[in-house]
Simulated assay, not measured.
Amino acid sequence: MAIIRSILDTDLYKFTTSYAYSKLYPRAYGQFRFIDRAKTRYPEGFAELLRQELQQMAELQLTRDEAQFLTRELPYLPPTYIDFVRGFRFDPDEVHVSQDEEGQLSIVAEGLLYRVTLWETPILALVSELYYKVLGVEPDLAYAEQSIIAKAQRLKEEGITFSMFGMRRRFSSDIEDRVTRLLKEYSGTNFYGTSNVYFAYKHGLRVSGTHPHEWVQFHGAMFGYKMANYMAMEDWINVYDGDLGTVLTDTYTTDVFMRNFSKKHAMLFTSLRHDSGDPLLFADKVIARYRELRVDPQIKYIIFSDSLDAERAIEIAKHCKGRIGTSFGIGTNFSNDVGAGIQPMNIVMKLWKCKMTEKDKWHPCVKLSDVDGKHTGEPEEIDLAQRTLGLI
């Protein structure tokens, strides 16, 4: 049986970003590259097994019930885009997979951005689940369920509002399904929802999510690094007109973002998302910036989503209490805590280059993390971006 069994088995931000590209930049092209930060040596033949899974994804088709769910739960996506998703088919020819003699895996997805962006999260979920399956790693289901129930109850006791952000590095689809059900059962209304559209559909949950680094990366490549955050926010507002009001801050470091964050954007966006660096320091910087802009931080939120577990979320919430609202997106610690000695994968797919039309020249894309060593992109372009932004 195929691992990905529904077009909805993806994170919300893939659909919202796809629609934004289709509305504003329908002729833009992009290339995504797979990055394994742990430099895993994959078993011989892994690339071929992955290609087989990708081929099976070409058969996926949105059902009528799924389309009705999108229409009902994602009202900011217009009927024209829902119709596009109903007719959408994954094209495996857009993805090139190979494996070298040392077992290193290469995955490159390239094509029109409104289409090719939809490959990112399913590919990561495929690699993760397929890796454990090929190695014969079995989850300890009793441990996994006991662990998630304890976390769910602990978060509920502390009054923490949180969402499930666990698809990309999940142990398996089945584990994510079980975890989602248990969080709903044991956390109640403290469990805000899930970023996985399919499991929101299956379990009757809110679909929860933000926008991705790639949106800002694209704007950096097209409009320059100094204007990237500003243009990305302006375009998001133009597309969604106040819906989906969370903005990601660390594509070119949080300090650069804060310089770009105007009062207009501080008022229009409901929340900022933290995804790298010290979360407590980040909260202090955000609160200080809101006050500098004469915006009451207590009417705003921070969504924390960087390598969280329940205890870390509780610590952060206590630091922010009475100062700014908080919510939490907890991912791998929910979807891949399945037994002693089973380590989650450290994998991502990032926008590597883009261009405005097929005939244009490619522009390299980079991401400058708040954590040293997590920058992505070609070294010379990373250096250029850092110099342009005064980071060197």
Rank of each mutant, 00 (worst) to 15 (best):
K285R: 14
I123Y: 03
P78R: 01
C354G: 01
K184V: 00
F269G: 05
K318R: 15
Y19L: 03
P122C: 01
M233V: 04
Y25M: 05
L118K: 09
P379S: 03
F15I: 12
D100G: 02
D306P: 02
A20F: 15
H265R: 01
R181N: 09
V366M: 07
V108H: 08
F162N: 05
E48L: 00
R312H: 14
Y19C: 04
E380N: 07
L49Y: 15
I342H: 14
Y192N: 07
Q99P: 12
A385I: 14
L183S: 03
M356G: 09
L391P: 13
I324M: 05
S22V: 01
Y186T: 01
D306C: 07
D65R: 12
A317K: 15
D337I: 01
Q61Y: 00
F84A: 01
H265P: 07
N229F: 02
R181V: 11
R154P: 08
M349F: 07
E101S: 10
L50W: 08
A200C: 00
R291E: 12
R64L: 12
G242P: 14
A288L: 03
V85P: 13
F261H: 10
I330L: 09
L351V: 14
L391S: 13
T254C: 05
G111E: 11
S22F: 09
L60T: 03
L70W: 03
T388R: 14
V366L: 13
T326V: 14
V239P: 13
T254P: 11
E145N: 15
T376P: 07
L135D: 15
A221W: 09
K14A: 07
A58T: 05
D241H: 11
F165K: 04
G325W: 06
M233P: 14
E311Y: 06
K202T: 14
T254S: 11
A266R: 04
L135Q: 15
G159R: 10
F334K: 02
T210N: 10
Q386T: 06
D11F: 00
I175V: 10
R115L: 02
G188A: 00
